[in-house]
């Protein structure tokens, strides 16, 4: 019992020590859950915590993989249309890196260790790009896959899903804080937020937290139903439309009768 107490005290002291092993970074994420509802229009996640004094802080935000269907546009008969279609798998749906300085200042050996990838090179190399030939699925060789993974990165960057943000973490003594802009089409699931403290070219602390992204309310019910139970969803969509059409036209008739003392005009046609 006594030994256990000593042990736990030791652990406590060790944990509170400002400069320790590679875990000496602690932080909180607010909010910890993002609820994507009907009016969801993106969010800002606050990350703040402590790192050993004098460290550079890097924050890596990675969402689960999500497959993406891509087309390459080409000109046929003067009109632009899709000439090639592929599926890209194995790339995270969101990938952001924030740093107190410049992300590119991170030494190469630490890039590999932390998975911080300012050129998205490792992420792209990891992706599998496949093409359908009749009923066979063929994986594209790297020299042809590169065009599509680079294109996907551009598409994601444009939506704010992929970003490398220099000078986006404020460090003051031991404390740091940062705001991560989350675009509205953030992938659902568990997003990992990892903080790395780097001092004198080596990793002096790191810690990870999970940000939960879930659909709520009407959006969740509808979105999941549309995918998992399309027959019921289709019937519901038709039913809702009929109910809306008939009830609103009835309501307008009443309203017109009341206000204008006349028969209402039909809603359409």
């Amino acid at each position: 019992m006594r030994r256990l107490m000593w042990l736990s005290l030791l652990v406590l002291v060790w944990a509170l020590l400002p400069v320790g092993g590679a875990t000496a970074a602690s932080f909180t994420v607010t909010p910890q859950t993002i609820e994507v509802g009907t009016g969801f229009n993106g969010a800002r996640i606050k990350v703040s915590g402590k790192v050993p004094e004098g460290s550079d802080v890097y924050i890596k935000v990675v969402s689960p993989d999500r497959p993406a269907g891509l087309s390459k546009q080409g000109r046929k008969g003067g009109l632009w249309m899709a000439v090639e279609t592929v599926t890209v798998r194995g790339m995270p749906g969101m990938y952001q890196v924030l740093a107190s300085g410049a992300v590119r200042d991170l030494p190469p050996e630490l890039r590999a260790q932390t998975g911080i990838d300012p050129d998205y090179a490792a992420i792209r190399a990891n992706a599998r790009v496949t093409e359908k030939h009749e009923d066979k699925t063929v994986e594209l060789p790297p020299e042809r896959a590169g065009e599509f993974t680079a294109g996907l990165v551009r598409l994601y960057e444009r939506r704010g899903l992929y970003a490398v943000r220099d000078n986006a973490v404020r460090v003051q003594g031991e404390t740091f804080e940062a705001e991560i802009p989350i675009p509205a089409d953030i992938p659902k699931g568990e997003t990992q937020i990892t903080v790395y403290a780097v001092k004198d070219g080596s990793l002096v602390g790191n810690n990870a937290q999970t940000l939960h992204v879930e659909s709520v309310g009407l959006v969740r019910v509808m979105a999941s139903m549309a995918q998992t139970n399309p027959v019921a969803y289709g019937l519901l969509a038709v039913g809702v439309a009929l109910a809306a059409g008939l009830s609103i036209s009835w309501a307008f008739r009443q309203l017109n009768r009341l206000i204008f003392k006349e028969e209402g005009v039909g809603a359409h046609h």
């Binding site: 009907t38 509808m222 399309p230 969509a237 809702v240 809306a244 809603a267």
Partner: peptide, 24 residues
């Protein structure tokens, strides 16, 4: 509507209702 829902999953009923409200 029904066919699109079961073959393409492209019917957005929320979008449709908002459109309808506006157009009415």
């Amino acid at each position: 509507t029904f066919q699109q829902a079961i073959t393409n999953h492209t019917v957005d009923v929320v979008l449709a209702v908002i459109l309808f409200a506006g157009s009415t």
